[in-house]
Nucleic acid binder design. Structure first.
Lengths: 347, 347
DNA sequence: CACGTCAGCTACAACGTTTTCGTGTTGATA
DNA sequence: TATCAACACGAAAACGTTGTAGCTGACGTG
C-alpha cells in the first residue's frame, strides 16, 4: 500500500521546491523545459493526482452538487438523477445524494450536513412533510448563506430560486381532454392531498379540461389519496381507498397523478371485472417502468425526468460559474411533456 | 447574503485568538467559563458550523463514501443505495454516487475522480463491460493506494476485498426445485452471458437443481441474453430473443435471472396465448416494483437489497474506522434470500 | 525574595494546493 | 564595468481547522 504522492514528496525526491513542482505540472512558462520534463515524468510514474480536498479548500469551491430527494426507490427521481449526473459529470462536477424519506427533519439534517462546505449548490425536490408543515427556513437560510438552490418537480412558490417544472395544469388538461375526446362521459381523478403542489395543480388542470367542455365538475369524482408521507408500504391502504372510490362512483375514464395510482386503479378495476380500455380508460402521469411493463401497458404522460435533471444541473452550474457581480434573475424553466399512447386508452 | 462565519472572524469579533475560539467551542478545559459562554453564544447567534473541507484536509478523512453502480434507474440498485444511505447517515457519513452506465471507461473515470481525496472508501457493483474485458487494474490500484473497496452483487473473485453477495447458486437451486415440485416438466432459464457472475452462478444453480432430481439438462432450454451492456433501450431486442426461444422450445416452467427478463417472458408468453401459471409457471430474481405490480403478480426471489446496502456500508465503515494496525482479513457476507410467492406459480 | 504552580490564553505548525512576489544567475548592452 | 532584462527557481501566504507547545500574570510556599 503505497501512499498517494503529494507535491511535497515529489519536491523532496527531485530536490526542487514545492512551487516548482506545482508550476511544472501546470506547464507554467516560469519553469525550464528540462525541469518540467523531469517533474512530469516522475509524476506520471507515481501516478500523481492533485488532492481534491486541498483544491476545494483553496478555491472555495468543491465541484460537487448536492441532490436531495424524497426517495430514491422511485423511477422518476432516478431518471432525474441520471440527467443531473450526466450533465454534471460532463462539466467536471460530482453528485452527492441525500434522501429525505419525505421527512422534514431528515431534509433539514441533510441540508445542514452538506451546507458546511461539502457542496457548491443544491438540487432539491422537497419532502411532502415540508410542504405540509410549510416550514421553509432551512431553504431560505441556505440561500442566504450564498448557496444556490434549484428546485424541481415539487416546488415552493414562496422561495425565490431557480426552478424546473412541468406545466402540470396544462399537461393534465391535455390528458383529460384526450379522455373526453375518446368518448369518456364520467371522468374521475386520483390525486394527492392539496399541499403537494403537483397534485393540486394537476387537479386544477383536470377541472379546467372538464369546464372547457362544459362538463360540470363532480367533487365526488375527485379522490385525494392520503398516503401518510410514504407511498411504499401502505399499498393496501392505497388499494382500499381506491376500492371505496369505485364502490361509490362509476367512471369510464380515470386520470391518475402518478403511475402507482394508475396501476393500482387498474388492479382494483380488474378485480371488479372491468375491462380496460373498453369499460374504463386510464391515463397516468410519469413514464416509468411500471407504465411500460404493465398489463395492459399504460397510456401515460412522460415528464422527461432525464431532461429535467439535465436542465436543473445546467441552471445550477451556470449560476455557480457566473462570475458577473450582477446577480442573474431566477429562472423557472418548464420542461415539455408528451402523452405516450399505449393500451389503456382507445384510438 | 451573509458569509459563513469562520473561526477567524469570530476570533476577531470577540478579540480573542483563533485557538481560543476553537477550544471554547469544543469545550476544552483550557478555556475559562466566561470566555466559553461568550464564544458559544456568538457562534450560535451567527450559526457557526465548522467547514467540512478544512476538517477533511486536516483529518485526512472525508466521512464520505463513494458508491459506483452501473445504473441508477434500476430498482435493485436504488434499494441498495437506500440501505447504504441509511447506515452511512447514521454513522455521520455522506454518499457520493457515480454511474458507470455499464461502461468500463466511465467506471474508471468515476473511480479516479473520487479517489483523489474526495472519499474514504468505495462501494461498487462492477459494470458488465468491466467483467467482460476482465480489466481490473483500476480496482486493484485503488486498493493499493489504501482506499478500501466493498463489492456487492456483481463481484470479482480475483480481487481481494470485502464483498456482499447473495448465494446465487443455492438460491437459484431452491427456485428451480420449487418449479419442479409444482409439477413443471420442462423447465427453462433465461440468463445473461457467462461473464456476468450472477448470471453464470444462477445458471449453475439451475443445473444443480435439475441434476439433483435426476433430470437431464437440455442446453437448448438455457437462453443467455445478449444485452449489449444496456438493458434499457433494446427492449425489442430482448423480446425478439425470448420470442425465438419460445418458437424453438416448449416449456412449462421458467426461471429468469432478473425481473425484466421474467416480465418480458410473461408478455411474450401471453402473446402466444399461454396462460400463467396454468400453462407456464415463472419465477424471477430480484423483488422490484415490476414484480409486485405485474399482471399476474410475479413470484420472485427477494434479494433484500436494502440489507445488502446496509451490510456493505457496515463492512466499509468498520474497515475505515478500524484503527488496529493489524489488517483485518477480508470478509464476504452472504445475505439471505426469500422466495416471495405470488401468482405466477401454482400452490 | 526566589521559585514553582496554575489558570487562561496565544502562537505556530500542519494538512495539500496555488499564486504572488521575490531573488540569484546569466548574458547582453551602453 | 556598471546596468538591466530574461530566465529559472524558491519562499511565503492563504484557504479553515486542530493540537501542541509556549507564554503571561497571579498566587502560594519556603
Amino acid at each position: 500500500m503505497k501512499q498517494k504522492p503529494t507535491l511535497k514528496v515529489i519536491a523532496k525526491e527531485l530536490d526542487v521546491s514545492v512551487s516548482t513542482v506545482s508550476k511544472a505540472l501546470r506547464d507554467s512558462k516560469e519553469i525550464g523545459e528540462e525541469t518540467k520534463n523531469k517533474v512530469k515524468a516522475f509524476a506520471k510514474l507515481y501516478n500523481y493526482r492533485p488532492n481534491n480536498i486541498a483544491l476545494s479548500l483553496k478555491n472555495k469551491k468543491t465541484k460537487t452538487l448536492g441532490v436531495i430527494i424524497p426517495e430514491i426507490v422511485h423511477h422518476f427521481f432516478t431518471t432525474v438523477i441520471s440527467g443531473i449526473e450526466h450533465y454534471a459529470n460532463d462539466k467536471g462536477y460530482n453528485v452527492i445524494v441525500g434522501l429525505s424519506n419525505e421527512s422534514f427533519k431528515k431534509e433539514v439534517i441533510n441540508l445542514e450536513m452538506l451546507a458546511n462546505g461539502s457542496i457548491d449548490g443544491f438540487i432539491i425536490s422537497v419532502a411532502k412533510e415540508t410542504l405540509s408543515v410549510k416550514d421553509y427556513h432551512h431553504l431560505s437560510e441556505t440561500i442566504d448563506q450564498g448557496i444556490p438552490i434549484v428546485m424541481f418537480d415539487r416546488v415552493i412558490d414562496e422561495i425565490d430560486c431557480d426552478k424546473v417544472i412541468v406545466d402540470d395544469v396544462k399537461t393534465s388538461e391535455k390528458a383529460v381532454r384526450k379522455l373526453i375526446s375518446s368518448g369518456c362521459k364520467q371522468i374521475g381523478i386520483i390525486s394527492t392531498k392539496d399541499y403537494v403542489s403537483v397534485g393540486r395543480l394537476r387537479t386544477e388542470g383536470y377541472k379546467n379540461a372538464l369546464e372547457s367542455k362544459g362538463i360540470e365538475v363532480d367533487t365526488n369524482l375527485i379522490l385525494k389519496i392520503d398516503d401518510k408521507f410514504n407511498s411504499d408500504d401502505n399499498l393496501e391502504f392505497l388499494e382500499q381507498q381506491i376500492h371505496d372510490y369505485f364502490e361509490k362512483n362509476t367512471v369510464d375514464g380515470l386520470f391518475a397523478v402518478n403511475e402507482l395510482y394508475a396501476i393500482t386503479a387498474m388492479k382494483v378495476a380488474r378485480q371488479k371485472g372491468l375491462s380496460i380500455p373498453n369499460d374504463l380508460q386510464i391515463i397516468g402521469f410519469t413514464d416509468g417502468v411500471l407504465s411500460k411493463h404493465a398489463y395492459p401497458p399504460l397510456t401515460t404522460i412522460s415528464q422527461h425526468g432525464f431532461e429535467m435533471g439535465e436542465e436543473a444541473a445546467k441552471l445550477l452550474i451556470e449560476r455557480l460559474e457566473n462570475t458577473n457581480d450582477d446577480e442573474e434573475p431566477f429562472k423557472t424553466t418548464i420542461v415539455k411533456t408528451d402523452i405516450i399512447d399505449r393500451e389503456t386508452t382507445k384510438l
